[in-house]
Design a protein around this nucleic acid. Structure first.
Length: 492
DNA sequence: ATAGGGTTAG
């Protein structure tokens, strides 16, 4: 049975009512760091749900932990060496500290961001700003650190800063992103009681976005009712987020009725984001006729498609095996002077590859380069998978060589494609070489890598190795450290 | 200056 979006894991294991909270990233710092590195597979690292008592203990602890981080001296040396030429950590240049903080925040390096922030607070010129706190809290939310976000909020209050709706909203978002529904809702209630910090349309839109992302559609009516009660009208973004959420969850009826509500809503006209969400939903379900009908409807409403719209159409037609229509979209773009992007070409290449049309796939790849659109890791990923499906393993080294000669940043998904290609073909030895190659390129194996390799070992009848993958990977790792790396024959 | 923007791997 297919779990919609694969995200229901949390809720199935919970038996403590609608607001019961799943195990979260905050449970263990090392697990949280691992989840951060693994990106979309974060869920896999937290199969065990956290007992209520355990969670409470962490809540008490987190203040201490945070202040420890804020005092951490490790980052200070780093900032000094990198950006600051000063001997005293109390007299640093604003520009350097703030720049370093910005960098850390935008790279989601929450630990160094907090350390740099601790440094910032020591400066004579430091002037606490709500916006800085808000940004840090949002980042902590993204990094699975809602407890730290909460502590930061307390620190802000203790610095005598008057809270504003946007810092409250940032914390609501940090809680919501991590499914801390009780905390998020309590905070919204607190806002209602404060005359200067009433929740606004941003607060509720962010909260609803969190609900959608975590498939808590049951709580959406409640949020909307609260908004109505407070006289806050949903805006275009609010509606788009709900429509997109239902679409992603393949709840097409709910999506359509949300669209009707949006159209009925005063001053809320559907825009190209609405269109794209709807097309994506139908395309993803393979409902091509519905997709085309929606496209026409939006045309009549005067909503103009953008490049993303065309990319979605191309992807959908491609996956539905309608290559001819896919090409028609490309022609249409040309006539309307829409420049194809990397995503456009990647979608085309991917669907030709899936369809086993290697000629067309290669032709499109050539055209892409000829038009000066830069291939990226996704491009190479699709090509490798295309070759793999067509049994053309011999052409993969050619692709590897091309990536070597370009400045494209290879990533874990790319190597997973390569490893899968050789694994599927039963070429276990080459697969292992590719694993070493991956390590050499500083790409971290993730849960997909491991699953792929286990499957390959099983397929090759190496059941023992599949059972004890850890042992085998340690052996490979040892080889890697001893400099065995890749047999260069592959690339020459 | 607070929200969405959709290509890849098991």
């Amino acid at each position: 049975m297919e779990l919609p979006g694969g995200c229901s894991l949390h809720w199935q294991t919970q038996g403590r009512g609608a607001l019961a909270r799943p195990a979260t990233a905050a449970a263990s710092p090392s697990a949280a760091a691992a989840s951060q590195r693994s990106g979309r597979n974060r869920r896999l690292f937290f199969p065990r749900s956290l007992g209520e008592g355990e969670g409470r203990a962490l809540w008490r602890e987190s203040g201490k932990e945070l202040s420890k981080i804020l005092r951490e001296e490790a980052a200070i040396g780093g900032v000094e060496r990198k950006a600051i030429s000063s001997t005293s950590t109390h007299r640093l240049w604003p520009k350097a500290v703030l720049g370093a903080l910005d960098d850390a925040v935008s790279n989601n390096q929450w630990e160094s961001a907090l350390q740099i922030f601790g440094l910032l607070r020591k400066q004579k010129w430091y002037n606490p700003k709500g916006r800085t706190f808000a940004r840090l809290m949002m980042m902590l939310g993204r990094c699975g650190q809602p407890r730290h976000a909460g502590s930061l909020f307390q620190i802000m209050l203790s610095e005598g800063l008057r809270p504003t709706p946007d810092v409250y909203t940032a914390l609501v978002g940090a809680y919501g992103r991590n499914a801390f529904w009780e905390e998020a809702l309590a905070l919204i209630d607190e806002m209602k009681s404060l005359p200067t910090c009433h929740p606004d349309v941003y607060t509720y839109t962010i909260f609803i976005d969190c609900l959608c992302k975590q498939r808590r559609f049951d709580l959406i009516p409640r949020a909307l009712a609260e908004m109505k009660q407070l006289g806050i009208s949903p805006n275009v973004v609010t509606h788009n987020i709900i429509i997109d959420g239902y679409g992603k969850a393949k709840m097409l009826e709910e999506m359509e009725s949300s669209l009707s509500e949006m159209i009925a809503c005063e001053g809320c006209l559907p825009d190209e984001c609405t269109l794209n969400s709807i097309l994506w939903a139908y395309g993803d379900c393979g409902l091509i006729q519905e997709m085309e009908r929606s496209f026409d409807e939006f045309q009549h409403m005067g909503v103009e498609p953008d490049v993303t719209t065309f990319n979605i159409l191309i992807r959908s037609y491609g996956r539905a095996g309608l290559q001819a229509k896919m090409c028609l979209v490309m022609d249409f773009m040309k006539k309307r002077f829409f420049s194809p992007t990397t995503v456009t070409f990647n979608s085309m290449i991917d669907s030709f590859g899936r369809a086993g049309n290697i000629e067309k796939m290669e032709e499109t790849f050539r055209l892409m380069k000829f038009q000066g659109v830069k291939p990226n890791s996704v491009t190479y990923c699709s090509i490798v998978s295309g070759y793999s499906r067509a049994g053309l393993l011999v052409r993969i080294p050619l692709i590897l060589r091309q990536t070597e000669n370009s400045d494209v940043a290879l990533d874990t998904p790319f190597f997973n494609c390569v490893i899968n290609a050789y694994g599927e073909a039963g070429e276990v030895e080459i697969m292992e070489e590719m694993f070493l190659f991956m390590r050499e390129k500083h790409c971290k194996p993730d849960s997909v890598t491991l699953a792929t390799m286990i499957q390959a070992y099983r397929g090759a009848g190496m059941l023992q190795v599949a059972e004890n993958l850890d042992t085998r990977l340690l052996e490979l790792d040892k080889q890697f450290r001893q400099g065995a790396c890749l047999k260069r024959g592959m690339l020459e």
